[in-house]
Amino acid sequence: MILSRRQVHFYSFVGLGIILPIVFIAGLALRPNYDMQATDAATDLFAQAGFATGEDGEAISSDSFTVARVPIAAETLRLTDGSVVLDLTPKKSLPVVDVLVYWDAGSEAPEALGDEAVLLGNLAGDARRRFEIPAELQGQSGQLVFYSQAQSQVVTAAPFAAEMTQ
């Protein structure tokens, strides 16, 4: 009884000793080559999707906000082509669905989204996101409005000083 167990044990390892080295060597030898280099096209797609992947530009100013208890670092930059961008980096993903970032005029935090509010882009995840500030808004003070598209409500608004974009 026990003898047979010992034999099963021994011969299963003889079996493994034959099969596994074959699997190991064949698995390495037959490994296909996947081209996994990130191309420039990918970088462009990331930029289009609003990720800050391109140049760092020249820093203008920085600030920080808290949206739904998540701290967000804000930095404004002037890029070489003269455009001004706002980079937002949430410390972690926002616990709010479908967040859109708007610029709105005024010095008070708005309760609802104003008709004149300008859409800058969407904010999700915890990667550094880049928003272009249109020329007509540069040097103007206003509010950054964080709006949940799914919940149709303003999550929070933070003052956005004129110095940020000058």
């Binding site: 099969i19 596994l20 699997v23 698995g27 390495l28």
Partner: peptide
């Protein structure tokens, strides 16, 4: 022992690729 053999396959055909 069977499980060990399966896992060597899991790693060789998975992570090692």
């Amino acid at each position: 022992y069977v499980a060990y053999g399966l896992l060597v396959g899991h790693v060789v055909l998975g992570a090692l690729q």
